[in-house]
Design a protein around this nucleic acid. Structure first.
Length: 720
DNA sequence: TTCCAACTGTTTTTT
DNA sequence: ACAGTTGGAA
């Protein structure tokens, strides 16, 4: 064994990496080198000959983490990582189901529904069964179905003691039937199917249990019941399960994560000792002391205390603002000061509990001319135009996909209205056929009938042409002939959508490039693989090492990241901890863990801020400081003074004070609050702005013509 | 089919 | 406050 692999590991890390063949629980604190231990363990197992690459099964939650793991393994070992089973829960389940689709009762090209698709499917189901969506809200039913699946329960296994639950149970069964008919599978179904497959098929089960001698799990505290059951089944009696997690960073109970899995694991797998990684390599002492003190207030913990070899560093800065507005101004000032000290903006994070809080912060940053990037929001494959394009492709791959059919049969509009669609759906139901097959019967009369036949012919033609084309050209061809391009060209706000559609072709080209090495480029398989990729990997959402911009995100989104300086804003009772958390069982403890995650993101400097008043849901609300602030030792805190009162008093009491920084670019002639005149609309005041350069627009409240958005490049605005 | 007014629900989110 | 959705009228 070359020492290089194990070099530089501390004793606990080394112990974890070189554990004998037995199941182990690694309690890895924030910044304790968790990913390093996990990947080094894999490399060690392979390099020491205890295991071949194909005997490893390593699972994570996010694509980003999976990719990171593969990259690191590849850097440590001269092996081809392609054959290794390293991926996300859903990615690996998908892989197994594709390999054994017949045994799993699925068609070869089964499609994967994302949450939005699933919600659509539920709505469709309710409509088809004539069920009042008011009484059975689709979202709630979706939640019910996913909740059941995530516990490993099929509809018939649910115990229903009241009529309402019984009805939901029936609808769950009907939903599963509908999915089966259409050849689609939702996220939870991927795992449940795979679990049931292994449970039912002893031959397959033994095959995989034999093969995977080492099962490694990242972020174990985030696993749900079904994931745990699946792992248990996969591991069997012989595999060594290496579970890495941190109960103090469990912040996803609200979506089914079961921290209890850690205790169950300890028992079920006869874990002999828990290895604790407590040395933190990220933060200075004061920050860790604060985090430790805070989390100490939680009752249900496995217990762990982070320490560092570094000094205590700077005190934690605490700022009380009179309003959310002032809080934002404070953060802007401090970010600028840090920038002057040489800290990169991309090394600063501005965190908040809920997305709604970003608006005012963005506004302040924009006006100060500080570049920023907000994480969260719509992802690439979730955009409307991309969804439409994918629906065409899905229909080409699988005509029975009713969801895809409904999405595009009249988009762009081809005169197939709701009326005709209802008729078609009626035929489909009577004949027990998919919409596609119902349409093929040609029983629809009139104009709509002709249009429907034309649509069928269009998709058939697309399928015909596509079979001989490389994937990117298939998409290009489809975009043209479906009329999507023409439709968005005609739409006034369609330019960006067209760009995205173009980007879809690029994404496909990139995908082909990456996957043609291990797969002969048989076109239909390539298309199916790309569609899977689109559902399973909806595009970047979590923060990556960003461009030179201040990083804005929720605390949840910040998990796993680190920054030189971190601002945690909105530390008020009701906001953080969130008021809704008080009702839930263990809600407050989860909020505290969330705060713990937030604090431990900081390497060197930590700012905590709260505001005495804030606009919330359109109303001014007065709040008090978060209890979490009281739980931090005062000795670690340095209260920063508010700006000199004289300066505050001198500011005119106006919603937007003149003299703030330029609204568009630093040095621009325009700023918020400025009085202007327009040749047509007359006098007005600039009240908002967005974009930069030639895209810059300002919102002007005109005295006589109301509020309007104007492009600075074209509007002939004059300072009044 | 398109547009607008009224209405709704606003914690966190990956796959 | 505000964005997203729905229902009705044009």
């Amino acid at each position: 064994m070359p020492p290089s692999l194990l070099h530089g590991l501390n004793p606990e890390q080394l112990a974890a990496v070189t554990l004998p063949h037995e199941s182990a629980l690694i309690l890895a604190g924030a910044g304790s080198g968790k990913t390093r231990v996990l990947t080094t363990r894999i490399a060690y197992l392979i390099q020491s000959g205890q295991s071949g690459p194909s005997n490893i099964f390593a699972v994570t939650f996010t694509n980003k983490a999976a990719k990171e793991m593969l990259t690191r393994i590849a850097a440590m070992l001269p092996i081809n990582t392609r054959g290794m089973w390293v991926g996300t829960f859903h990615g690996l389940a998908n892989r197994m189901l594709r390999a054994h689709h017949r045994e799993a009762g699925l068609q070869a090209l089964f499609q994967i529904l994302d949450s939005a698709d699933q919600l659509g499917a539920v709505k469709r189901l309710l409509k088809a069964l004539n069920i009042d969506a008011e009484k059975y809200p689709p979202k709630q039913l979706q939640h019910f179905i996913n909740g059941a699946k995530e516990q490993g329960l099929r509809a018939h296994m649910i115990e229903a003691f009241d009529p309402y639950t019984r009805r939901q149970q029936e609808l769950y069964a009907a939903y599963d039937e509908q999915c089966q008919r259409e050849g689609v599978v939702d996220f939870a179904e991927l795992l449940l199917r795979c679990y049931e497959l292994l449970q039912r098929d002893a031959h397959l089960r033994h095959h995989y249990q034999e093969r995977f001698s080492h099962v490694l799990v990242d972020e174990f505290q985030d696993t749900n019941q079904l994931q745990y059951l699946w792992l248990k089944l996969l591991a069997g009696e012989r595999a060594a399960v290496f579970a890495v997690g941190d109960d103090d960073q469990s912040i996803y109970a609200f979506r089914g994560a079961r921290v209890g899995n850690m205790a169950d694991f300890e028992r079920d797998f006869q874990v002999r000792q828990i290895i604790r990684l407590e040395q933190n390599y990220r933060s200075h002492g004061n920050i860790l002391d604060a985090a430790n003190a805070l989390i100490h207030h939680n009752q249900s913990r496995l217990g762990k205390n982070l320490w560092t070899a570094e000094g205590s560093g700077e005190p934690i800065r605490l700022f009380e603002a009179s309003s959310d507005f002032e809080e934002a101004a404070f953060i802007v000032d401090e970010a600028k000061a840090l920038q002057r000290e040489g800290v990169l903006l991309s090394n600063m994070a501005l965190l908040y509990r809920s997305n709604a809080q970003s608006r005012i912060l963005e506004h302040a940053l924009f006006n100060a001319g500080i570049p920023y990037r907000v994480y969260g929001g719509l992802r690439f494959f979730e955009r409307q135009e991309i969804k439409h394009a994918l629906a065409y492709l899905r229909l080409v791959a699988n005509p029975d996909d009713d969801g895809a059919m409904l999405r595009v049969i009249n988009f762009p509009t081809r005169g197939i209205g709701v009326r005709s669609l209802e008729q078609l759906q009626e035929i489909a139901r009577q004949e027990n056929l998919s919409l596609w097959r119902a349409a093929q019967l040609g029983r629809m009369g009139g104009k709509a009938g002709t249009s429907i036949s034309a649509f069928i012919a269009l998709i058939d033609a697309l399928r015909e042409t596509c079979s001989s084309l490389p994937l990117p050209e298939q998409i290009d061809h489809m975009l043209e002939h479906s009329g999507l391009v023409a439709h968005y060209k005609a739409e006034k706000e369609g330019a960006e959508r067209l760009e995205n559609l173009n980007e879809l072709i690029n994404a496909a080209a990139g995908f082909v490039l990456e996957h043609s090495a291990d797969q002969a480029d048989a076109s239909p398989d390539m298309l199916a693989a790309f569609l899977t990729h689109a559902s399973l990997e909806a595009g970047e959402h979590q923060a990556a090492a960003g461009q030179e911009a201040l990083q804005l995100m929720t605390v949840h989104a910040a998990k796993g990241l680190e920054f030189h300086a971190v601002f945690i804003s909105g530390l008020e009772e009701g906001l953080f901890p969130h008021e809704n958390a008080a009702q839930e069982r263990d809600g407050l403890e989860e909020e505290r863990r969330l705060m713990y995650v937030a604090i431990t993101r900081a390497r060197r400097r930590l700012y905590l801020s709260f505001a005495d008043s804030r606009m919330l849901h359109g109303q001014l609300r007065y709040g008090i400081a978060s209890r979490f602030l009281d739980e931090l030792p005062t000795a670690l805190l340095k209260r920063l003074n508010r700006a000199a009162p004289s300066r505050v008093a001198e500011e005119p009491v106006m919603p937007f004070s003149p003299g703030k920084r330029a609204a568009t670019e630093p040095g621009s002639a325009w700023h918020i609050g400025q009085a202007v005149t327009h040749p047509k609309f007359g006098p007005g005041i600039i009240i908002n702005s967005e974009g930069r350069g030639t895209d810059a627009r300002v919102q002007v409240s005109f005295s006589h013509s109301g509020v309007k958005w104007l492009a600075l490049e074209y509007a002939r605005l004059e300072a009044a």
